[in-house]
Design a protein around this nucleic acid. Structure first.
Lengths: 154, 154
DNA sequence: CCTATTCCTACTAATTTAGTAGGAAATGAG
DNA sequence: CTCATTTCCTACTAAATTAGTAGGAATAGG
């Protein structure tokens, strides 16, 4: 699974917006761009994805900037990923349940379904607020507690 | 997460090889290509990835074809994915633990680590034999048992 | 020696990803 | 009411990746 630059940047951006939200502040694209080294114009196009998905709203002018459209508790990582990259899991462009196979290997479909469930179990369970507060749901904290989790594999 | 055609085809191929293995049979690339509608030359290049990774071996000539180099119980889905597509999870080309962030959003790294763990929990636990026998590990069967698992989400 | 099959090298076309460029529209401050 | 600021919109481009093609050399068995 390759997390694209767009998704990575988009999450950085919306988390920054969520963080500012707490002080009733708006954030300018320019500030995010500077702080995290994201090319300005590229960032703008990502923010427009988030806007179209109804996750944030923008305000122009002198005191302009972006803010969330829902509380940060109600926006999960999966929302952001889908807004930018589309479905969490796809197989040759098909939804996992549409990837079917002939004969003895028919069971392969289950692998893709299980993969999608696994992704949902992480990405649907973590909200922006969870990340800012470092309050990781226990099911996920369990995954992180194993030292192997932080190591690369062959 | 987009599963590429290469990975999907590669798994179909190696499962077909594993299935034939049970009757001490070799499989020809041509047979796989026909049966699953995979372009022949494209399939060949995928099989060469699997060979390079030491998962299968090829034999030329009249009674040629491919067979596994290890028992099908010892080859997991993750092996095949890595052989063809590289690391299970990466963020802008970096390993998840290398994706770090400034300030309040530093916790984002944990999302990527948890995502990688989640993928491993599925892809490292299922062997080729498991799929052919429809013997799904209980931790994974649990994921599949929920009806929601088979449904698309917004 | 002939046929079947893998193996190897090189090429190509389409799509996606990552980014740039330029300016129009709105907003608030002075 | 004008001006600086900021989002918003449309279009373009360059690089990388993905999906596939083409042609033939190497090898093994009958």
């Amino acid at each position: 699974m390759k997390i694209s630059a767009r998704v990575d940047y988009g999450l950085q951006a919306i988390l920054e917006i969520a963080a500012a939200e707490r002080d009733m502040q708006r954030v300018k694209a320019d500030e995010i761009s500077e702080k995290h080294g994201i090319p300005m114009k590229f960032l703008e196009s990502i923010l427009s994805d988030l806007k179209r998905a109804g996750l944030i709203e923008g305000h122009r002018g002198n005191a302009g900037g972006y803010n969330l459209r829902k509380p940060s508790e109600e926006i999960v990582i999966a929302d952001v990923v889908r807004a930018i990259d589309g479905p969490l899991a796809s197989v040759r462009g098909l939804a996992p349940e549409k990837a079917t196979y002939k004969g003895q290997i028919a069971g392969l479909t289950k692998v893709w379904i299980a993969t999608r469930v696994a992704l949902r179990e992480v990405l649907e369970e973590m909200s922006l607020a969870d990340i800012l507060n470092d309050e990781i749901p226990t099911s996920i904290a369990k995954k992180l507690s194993n030292k192997e989790a932080w190591r690369r594999r062959a």
